Computed example of a mutant assay.
Amino acid sequence: MRAPLGIFDRFDNAVPAPARLGQLSRPVAEAIAGWAGQVPADEILYVDTDPAIADTAEFVAHYGRELLGRSANCVVVAAKRGGETSLAACLVPSYGRVDVNGAVRRRLGARKVSFAPMATAVEATGMEYGGITPVGLPADWPLLVDAALTEMPWVLVGSGRRRGKLIMPGAAFAELPSAEVLPDLTITP
């Protein structure tokens, strides 16, 4: 029997993600199929959602504003230093934005950090824009995770595609490859 999901109980079609690998992008499906974290893979849930409302603003307008405090956005950033550019990902609560010019730049030791172009993010992750998730990212990328997310019982994130979302225990984010939990990653309005 699944633990109560609180505000996510409204998604009555939520099922363990290992049972829906075909609905996930290839890298996300591979990551879930090979999951070895302390949080069991069956506690990572997949919920089918309308791809037309995948973006955060449309999603919370449709499903309820209270989801804003229990969902996260994963963004790909390009860090530049000494003529070299490297990619990283940041996971922050949906109600805020990534502190790109402060916390991210300092942590990556970069001269300049910016959001990666959409085409770069899609090609490098193997995921659809608007569905990029921390699950299944390239293992050699730094993954910076806002500490507040790891303390939440459940968090809604992308599934690698615009159709569908994952609902994950917050503790699972700290178990992802190259994850580093930071207390100051999000700027809140």
Results as ranks from 00 to 15, higher is better:
D42E: 14
V39H: 07
R97N: 14
R81W: 11
A174V: 03
A103E: 13
A14H: 00
L166H: 05
L156Y: 02
P16R: 04
V98C: 15
D42W: 06
K112C: 09
A54L: 03
S178Q: 14
P4H: 14
V39M: 08
A79T: 12
W35C: 10
G126P: 03
D99T: 14
G64F: 10
Y46N: 01
K112E: 12
A110H: 09
R10M: 07
M168Y: 04
K165T: 00
W35S: 07
R97A: 13
R161P: 01
I44D: 01
P134H: 09
V28D: 01
V60W: 01
I167V: 08
G37W: 05
P27K: 02
L143P: 12
E180R: 11
K112S: 06
V92D: 05
R2Y: 03
G83N: 11
G170C: 10
T133D: 07
R107L: 10
E66R: 11
P169W: 04
S178T: 12
T186Q: 10
G164Q: 00
K165Y: 00
T85E: 15
G160M: 04
A72C: 11
G102R: 15
A110T: 09
M1Y: 06
Y95T: 11
L68W: 09
A19R: 11
S25F: 05
A61S: 11
A19K: 09
P4Q: 14
F8T: 03
V155T: 00
V181W: 04
H62I: 03
A139E: 14
L137P: 03
N13F: 02
D50W: 00
V15K: 10
A61N: 09
G69M: 10
A57K: 11
L87K: 08
G83P: 08
L176K: 07
N101K: 15
V145H: 04
A174F: 05
A116R: 05
K112L: 11
L182W: 15
T186F: 07
P27D: 04
S178D: 14
P142L: 08
A172R: 01
D9C: 06
R162P: 01
R20D: 04
N101A: 13
D99R: 15
D42N: 10
L67N: 00
E30L: 08
T133R: 04
L156W: 01
P169F: 05
E123G: 05
W154D: 01
A14S: 03
T125G: 01
A29D: 00
L67H: 02
D184I: 11
N101W: 15
D99N: 15
S178E: 12
A147D: 10
F115H: 05
V104N: 09
C90T: 15
V28A: 03
A14N: 01
D55Q: 09
G158Q: 02
S178M: 13
A89W: 13
A179Y: 12
